[in-house]
């Protein structure tokens, strides 16, 4: 648990492994949703996961902070293996931030209270300090002036930026994005992507499930294509988009780049 600003990670540390998944399987009842996933993510790496709906990409990143339980294989996050041990789950969740498709801000709390809730109750940060940290991050996502408003009073793009700030307030080492722009009106997508690009440039380890291929080209070190619960192909963005290997990848790319 480093209290230091983990997002400004020097390049020399990038050889450290942030997430290690070995032979991970998951079933929803009879449905085999993740099949033999092997994935290693280095600290500071930025990964974009894409694939058709139902391919298991959301499930995969939700396994990393144990919102979903895997049934076989091993997941190690920042040196801690995820088991049913609640202490390990707690410590992993403190290090991993997550941004959801539908924002999931707490509607009964103001923007500022949304950002300070976890620092105050989980990290036991004094309120004044937590508010200072929150204002720093709200400024970073460019909405400090909305701090006293309630989520219901903000636009979708603003809400998603608050959600990102809320995660950052816990000073996570790894950020997970689960289709962060899919529920947004087109004109608001770029304001959220800008924030994510800024975060990527600061050296944050990121795993993003998204269909924003422009974002993938711009910031990703690696693009992963999933279909039917399997990782079909992974490559750097240049190779992935210009020279896809598998037929399924080619079909998918032709479908989403078509329009």
């Amino acid at each position: 648990m480093s209290e230091a600003a983990a997002h400004v990670m020097p390049q020399s540390q990038t050889d450290q492994v942030a997430v290690q998944m070995v032979g991970v399987h998951k079933w929803y009842g009879e449905f085999h949703v993740l099949k033999d996933i092997n994935l290693s993510v280095d600290a500071g790496e930025r990964i974009v996961i894409c694939g058709p709906s139902g391919s298991g990409k959301s499930t995969l990143i939700r396994c990393i902070n144990r919102l979903e339980e895997h049934q076989r294989g091993q997941i190690v996050v920042d040196g801690v293996e995820l088991t049913n041990d609640v202490r390990k789950i707690d410590s992993v969740r403190r290090e991993v931030g997550m941004v959801f498709q539908h924002f999931n801000l707490f509607p009964h709390l103001t923007v500022l209270e949304n950002c300070t809730l976890a620092p105050i109750w989980v990290k036991k940060t004094p309120k004044v300090e937590a508010e200072e940290i929150a204002m720093t991050y709200l400024a970073r996502v460019k909405i400090p002036e909305q701090a006293t408003k309630f989520p219901g009073q903000l636009s979708g793009g603003q809400q998603q930026r608050v959600a990102i700030a809320r995660s950052l307030c816990m000073n996570p080492k790894i950020m997970l994005f689960d289709e962060p722009t899919s529920a947004l009106d087109p004109e608001m997508i770029s304001e959220v992507l800008d924030v994510m690009v800024g975060l990527a440039e600061s050296g944050m380890t990121m795993l993003c499930v998204t269909h924003e291929m422009g974002f993938a080209r711009k910031v990703a070190n690696r693009v992963i294509f999933m279909d039917g619960g399997e990782i079909i192909e992974q490559n750097n963005p240049e190779e992935f988009f210009n020279n896809p290997q598998s037929d399924r990848t080619k079909l998918f790319l032709s479908q989403i780049l078509h329009n």
Binding site: N65, R93, G97, F100, H102, N104, F106, L117, W121
Partner: peptide, 26 residues
């Protein structure tokens, strides 16, 4: 919505505190 619970868990807030701080007030 279950998303509220998930968001709270993802922030590292434990289940009993999630009930008290996030779910019950709503």
């Amino acid at each position: 919505s279950h998303g509220q619970t998930e968001a709270s868990y993802a922030l590292g807030i434990r289940p009993n505190w999630t009930m008290r701080l996030v779910i019950l007030p709503q």
